[in-house]
Amino acid sequence: MSQKIAEAAVPQETSPVASILDRLKPENRGSLLRLSVQDHYTEVVTSRGRELVLLRFADALKETAATPGFRVHRSHWVADAHVESLKRGNGRLLILTRDGTEIPVSHSYAEDVRRRFT
């Protein structure tokens, strides 16, 4: 009996951080390109498609650890490899992605974005 108690007290190994890609339909699993907030959902865009996942943005960001990227706005995260260039539009800094999407950069992230991508 005491042996079972001792075994139960041994901490179990924790599993590695889940990947946001595991939450997607198999046909949408590809290289992670960007995340955006859509109401209570996170829109996940990959090289194979896009999908809305019922997941808080903060939790989704934790699941991007395997993909180098950067949060550029309270509602947007972009993979480093998906950034084409930076541009200015109407006095705002924008990221132009490889698929032509313009992602706004909030003022609080602007300096870090400039350092990282210029």
Rank of each mutant, 00 (worst) to 15 (best):
M1H: 08
I5T: 10
E7W: 03
E7T: 11
P11F: 03
Q12T: 13
E13T: 13
T14D: 10
T14Y: 05
T14L: 15
S15W: 08
P16C: 11
V17D: 09
A18Y: 07
S19W: 02
I20V: 14
I20L: 12
R23N: 14
K25N: 05
E27T: 08
N28W: 05
R29G: 07
G30L: 05
G30Y: 11
G30F: 11
S31H: 14
R34K: 13
R34I: 12
D39N: 09
D39H: 06
H40S: 08
H40T: 06
Y41F: 09
V45K: 03
V45G: 01
T46E: 12
R48A: 07
E51D: 09
E51A: 09
L52R: 09
V53G: 02
L55P: 07
A58Q: 12
A58G: 04
D59H: 03
E63A: 11
T64K: 06
A65M: 10
A66Y: 12
A66V: 06
A66N: 13
T67P: 05
F70T: 14
F70S: 15
R71S: 04
V72A: 07
H73D: 14
H73W: 11
R74T: 11
S75D: 06
H76A: 03
H76P: 01
A81E: 14
H82R: 00
H82G: 03
H82L: 00
V83G: 00
V83N: 05
E84P: 07
L86H: 02
K87P: 01
R88I: 08
G89M: 08
N90A: 13
G91Y: 07
G91A: 01
L93N: 04
E102A: 08
P104A: 11
V105S: 04
S106G: 04
H107N: 12
S108D: 15
Y109K: 10
D112H: 05
R115Q: 14
